[in-house]
Simulated scan of single mutants.
Amino acid sequence: MDGRQQQQTPNSAIGRSRQSGAALVALPVGARRVLPSLLDEIQSALGDQLLGVYLYGSVVGGDFDEGVSDIDLVVAFADAVDQSMMGRLETAHYRFWQTHPDFVDRIDLVYAPAAVLSGRPPSDGGSSGLPLLASVSPGSPLHTTPATRSWALNWQQARDAGATLTGRPVESVVRPVPVDEVRAVVAAEALSLRERIPETHHREAMPTSS
């Protein structure tokens, strides 16, 4: 042997657990079938800007339902979201869905600049002036969205319970998300949901005439 470590390809990295760095996660058949193609398209779109692709959610948690469950991913890249990048990503996702139409509504993926993943969480001052993410999810095509505090839940899941598919280890890219920050985000999300639900007015039954 020449002492050089063999470079790990995306396919060989699939399912490699971040926690141990060596233990393989037994990915479901559907995920194993489509992830190499998706990784190729992401690499083609981002090129040298790609820093890492991180898998989390049911596909690594053991409760993935074949034919139903989504594949959840965080993609880290070096620069910022711009119009040129969005065009390349749209082409990449179109090609992927042409090849794998059964996953058109089963990819939940966010493209995040490294500065967002590693930096301090944003304040509660709204979305004005925040960096942009690119996101695609079931029922929602590729679009830009502000990097608000609520995304910390995705970062936390990817870092603490995810797997690095390719690129830098997730713990070197995504900051730790403290428990108190997770609790604050969950509380804010619950309050927002409550405010969006219309109040139900209960009317007393009118007395019936005898």
Rank of each mutant, 00 (worst) to 15 (best):
G3A: 13
R4L: 12
P10T: 05
A13T: 07
A13G: 15
A13S: 09
I14M: 15
S17C: 13
G21N: 06
A23E: 10
A26K: 13
P28G: 11
V29A: 14
P36F: 03
D40H: 13
S44K: 09
Q49C: 08
Q49N: 14
L51F: 00
V53M: 06
L55N: 02
Y56W: 09
V60C: 05
G61C: 08
G62C: 07
D63K: 07
D65N: 14
D65S: 12
D65K: 15
D65E: 14
V68R: 15
A80T: 07
V81C: 06
V81E: 00
S84T: 15
E90N: 15
A92T: 05
Y94W: 11
R95I: 02
Q98N: 13
T99F: 04
V104T: 12
D108H: 05
A114T: 03
A114Y: 02
V116K: 01
V116T: 02
S118G: 10
S118L: 03
R120E: 13
L130T: 00
L132M: 15
P138W: 07
G139D: 06
T145M: 04
R149E: 13
Q157H: 09
A158N: 04
A158F: 03
R159T: 00
G162T: 05
G162Y: 00
L165M: 08
L165A: 00
P169E: 14
P169M: 10
P169K: 06
E171V: 06
E171S: 02
S172T: 10
R175C: 00
P176L: 01
D180K: 12
V182M: 08
V185L: 10
S192L: 11
R194W: 08
I197K: 03
P198Y: 14
P198L: 10
P198M: 14
T200S: 12
H201Y: 12
H202K: 12
A205H: 15
P207V: 08
T208E: 06
T208Y: 07
